Structure formats: C-alpha cells, structure tokens
Computed example of a mutant assay.
Amino acid sequence: MTAIDVTMVKCACSDCICVFSTKAAVTKEGRFYCSEECANHHKGGSGCHHAGCTCHG
C-alpha cells in the first residue's frame, strides 16, 4: 500500500469553507481548524474572518 501525505484540509468547523495547509492549522481535539475562532466553536460569535467565509459556528 502506498502512503499518502495530506497537506491541505477543509476546516473542521461545519459552517466554514476554508481550505488550508495542515502546517498552518490550529489543532484541537484531534481536528484541524483554520483559526482559533473555529477551534473554539465561535464562543464570542465571531467568524474566522477569512475572505469569502461567513462562518460563525
């Protein structure tokens, strides 16, 4: 079997549309997020603030 290195992922936040490098990820509970806001489930009600994304958890 051939190993596959994943370098780009979609944010684990269900409302988020961001795709980013795993090297830039915020990791929480074993999942990859694009920002602290998404990783913390938008507790303050703010989105990730990336262009074109309107997520708020």
Rank of each mutant, 00 (worst) to 15 (best):
M1C: 09
A3W: 14
A3P: 00
I4W: 09
I4E: 08
I4C: 09
I4G: 08
D5R: 13
D5N: 12
D5A: 13
V6G: 06
V6C: 06
T7R: 12
T7C: 06
V9W: 08
K10G: 13
K10T: 05
A12H: 14
A12Y: 11
A12T: 09
A12D: 11
C13S: 12
C13Q: 09
D15W: 03
D15V: 00
C16D: 03
C18L: 05
C18T: 11
C18P: 01
C18G: 03
C18H: 11
V19S: 13
V19K: 14
V19M: 12
V19H: 14
F20E: 01
F20R: 00
F20C: 00
F20I: 00
S21E: 07
T22A: 03
T22Y: 02
T22C: 05
T22K: 15
K23P: 00
K23C: 00
K23N: 06
K23S: 03
K23V: 02
A24E: 11
A25Y: 02
A25S: 13
V26P: 01
V26Q: 11
K28M: 05
E29R: 13
G30H: 07
G30N: 10
G30P: 00
G30A: 08
G30E: 08
G30K: 12
R31E: 10
R31K: 15
Y33W: 09
Y33V: 01
Y33Q: 02
Y33H: 05
Y33L: 00
Y33I: 01
C34W: 00
C34M: 00
S35K: 02
S35D: 04
E36D: 13
E37K: 15
E37T: 14
A39V: 04
A39R: 01
A39M: 07
N40Y: 07
N40M: 07
H41W: 05
H41A: 10
K43H: 09
K43M: 06
G44R: 13
G44A: 07
G44E: 09
G44K: 14
G45L: 04
G45T: 08
S46G: 09
S46C: 05
G47T: 02
G47R: 03
C48D: 02
C48F: 02
H49I: 01
H49C: 09
H49T: 04
H49S: 13
H50Y: 12
H50T: 06
H50S: 07
A51V: 02
A51T: 11
G52M: 05
C53A: 12
T54V: 06
C55G: 15
G57V: 05
G57L: 04
